[in-house]
Computed example of a mutant assay.
Amino acid sequence: MTERIRALLDEAVAGVGPRSPDPVPEVLRRGRARRRRLAVAGTAAAVAVAVFAVGGIVAANRGTSGKTPASRPSSEHFEATVSGGYVRTGGLAVPIPPGWPVIQDKRLTYCEVPANVFLVNVAMTDAPCGPTRHAFVGPWRPYGTPASVAELALINEVVLPGGQPLWLSGNELANVRAAPSASVNAPWAAASISIRGQRPQVEALLRGITANPVPPARLTLPETSPAVQLSVSAEKQLTSADPAVIEQVRALLAALDQPVRPGELPCPGATKVTGTWKLAGTDMAALTFTDPIGHLASAEVAISAGDTCAFATSSLGGRVHLPAGFLGRVEQLLGGR
């Protein structure tokens, strides 16, 4: 890591801190009793077909194209195509189980969902029926609520061939390992993927997920954000709405200049999830930015908690190596101890 980044880290932690009491943590504390439980087999993703209003985005990657792709997917206008036995969206391809028909762009109750179908951008509403065997691809966005940042589960990351990440919460990771249901997220495609079925069907679908390869790149970050929250654990969230603090946090991330190269992840000794999947990152802290218009969560950066094989991945694109102690410095900047 360059001396410039080290100096920037030291200067930010030493010279900047929250300047006034922040009302957002109190909102979050009141919401802890309602901590979201991530649903099995795509329920959460299917119900929450919400608008994702993203503010200005700036590419921190000056080593590759230097620009954010104009066609970056968002859950506001989720589009997917079905071709060659796959559901495709934003460079993501999810295999359709043999013989399963596709239902696309509809709103259904659970009672109206037949068994053995592939749902694409289908909003499901509650009904007195048990879940059927089905697969789902639909919109994903960082979890957030107006005027605050929602408490987030920690992130576990799998790296697909070609470099794109899949993110799983702790609950989702447990479900993937157990089957007969699984749910994973492709943040760069703004897509959520889930399946409920027989274990061979679940494993075949997960194994068949592919993505267009991406070159190594520095982190793409929001240009502005009225609030940020760092979820370090289920019991520890640090939040700030101080513009100076937010800019310092963003500057630390933007200065990281060592993209992760192909083959560097997962590191030796990585934990197997299922099939050929291994965890590149486990229980990574989630740094969430809100957008300046709707104050919904607009982007997440997953940050390794340890110093061994440490890296950070942005939901907007890019993955970089981290210097020792990076997460601790971000915690200090946000008022942590």
Rank of each mutant, 00 (worst) to 15 (best):
L206H: 09
P146K: 02
G15C: 01
G263H: 05
K236G: 05
L8M: 13
W277K: 04
G170E: 13
H77F: 08
K278G: 15
Q164T: 04
G15M: 13
V113K: 02
L108K: 10
P142N: 02
R35M: 11
P97H: 11
R37P: 01
L9S: 06
G269E: 07
G31E: 13
Q201M: 15
D105G: 03
A297H: 03
N116V: 09
P114F: 00
V159N: 11
Q198L: 15
A50R: 12
W167T: 14
L206I: 09
A179E: 14
S240M: 09
V176P: 12
E223T: 09
E331S: 10
L279H: 13
A280R: 04
C129K: 08
L265R: 14
K236C: 04
A48P: 01
V120L: 01
E3I: 02
A241S: 10
L38M: 05
L205N: 11
V54Y: 10
A305T: 12
G31K: 03
V122L: 07
V176S: 12
G85Q: 11
L166W: 03
S298A: 04
V245F: 01
H134A: 11
I155K: 14
S83E: 03
G66F: 06
E172C: 08
F118S: 06
G66L: 12
A244G: 00
A59W: 06
P216H: 03
G275M: 08
T282A: 12
P97V: 11
A186S: 09
L28K: 06
K106E: 01
A241H: 02
T313L: 05
L322N: 14
V137F: 02
A80V: 05
D242G: 07
E247V: 01
Q198W: 14
A7Y: 09
L206A: 15
A286S: 12
V228N: 07
D257V: 08
C267L: 12
P187M: 11
V202L: 10
A189W: 14
R337L: 10
